[in-house]
């Protein structure tokens, strides 16, 4: 059984009647590293957000481990979200809070509301937070405010927050497009490491070179529809022009 199945997913934004996704279907195997590519506005972000239902799909079905996510009540969906980590383009950290607080936020779904409102987390979670920070190499920044970190470090905090959830599935929404090329590779390598530990990863990326380097499989979106689904090697010059338009030229990110 595939890990994640998306069937005929369509999303139309009410305001302006913009069709963000149209009839998107694909499935992902457990432990796969899937990369979404496409121009900005092609629906990559919407697709990722539909999977954990931060955005409600208009129609279509999504199954995770055979459970239909699109049917779940908000409460049940929150339970499922705990197992879906997410990393964002703008990191989405609370800037004024410390790194530790940001990372601990990843455990909110596992703890009772009352104790988290008082800011109390189990010892176990604190230990886990230290482990996660160690894994992304930021243990010494534990009590530093998030806005004091560089972009790459902030994204690593974002990854640590996702790791805290002990995810089965990691959604990465353009995790490196706000970073410079060197930092991009270091962040992508952390994500690749997580994938090697058995977590399914779906990442949207802007640059094809990055997608080729890290993706095991690539899905290309254009105006909300899938125009390519296959191995990275299969994207030739003609396909590339089809996805990115005639004017585009491939840029290498080193």
């Amino acid at each position: 059984m595939p890990h994640l199945v998306v069937e005929n997913l369509t999303k139309v934004y009410e305001r302006g009647k913009i069709r963000a996704l149209f009839n998107v279907s694909f499935s992902v195997e457990k432990g796969e590293f899937l990369v979404l590519i496409g121009l900005s506005g092609s629906g990559k972000s919407t697709l990722l957000r539909c999977i954990n239902r931060l955005v409600e799909p208009t129609s279509g079905r999504i199954f995770l481990n055979g459970v239909e996510l699109t049917k779940l009540s908000p409460r049940a969906m929150r339970k499922v979200r705990r197992k879906i980590g997410m990393v964002f383009q703008q990191f989405n950290l609370v800037k004024r809070a410390t790194v530790l607080q940001n990372v601990l936020a990843g455990r909110l779904g596992y703890n009772s509301t009352l104790s988290t409102l008082l800011g109390r987390f189990p010892k176990e979670d604190l230990r886990r937070a230290q482990e996660c920070l160690e894994r992304v190499g930021l243990l010494d920044k534990m009590y530093v405010r998030a806005d004091q970190l560089s972009g790459g470090q902030q994204q690593r905090v974002g990854i640590a927050r996702a790791l805290m959830q002990e995810p089965e599935l990691l959604l990465a929404d353009e995790p490196v497009s706000a970073l410079d090329p060197a930092t991009s590779h270091s962040v992508m390598q952390y994500i690749e490491q997580i994938n090697k530990d058995g977590v399914t990863v779906i990442a949207s990326l802007h640059f094809l070179s990055l997608a080729r380097r890290y993706g095991q499989r690539i899905i290309a979106l254009k105006a909300g529809e899938i125009v390519f689904d296959g191995l990275p090697e299969a994207i030739d010059d003609r396909k590339f022009k089809e996805i990115y338009g005639e004017e585009a030229e491939e840029v290498e990110v080193r």
Binding site: L54, V80, R81, I84, F88, L93, V94, L108, L117, G119
Partner: peptide, 27 residues
């Protein structure tokens, strides 16, 4: 952004307010 991120971890509304909204507005 943080509201979205904390929601994505599976937190409920109260937790989102406590961990994504309050730290931003306290000062």
């Amino acid at each position: 952004g943080p509201v979205e991120a904390v929601t994505a971890t599976g937190a409920n509304l109260l937790q989102v307010v406590r961990y994504a909204v309050v730290p931003q507005v306290i000062p």
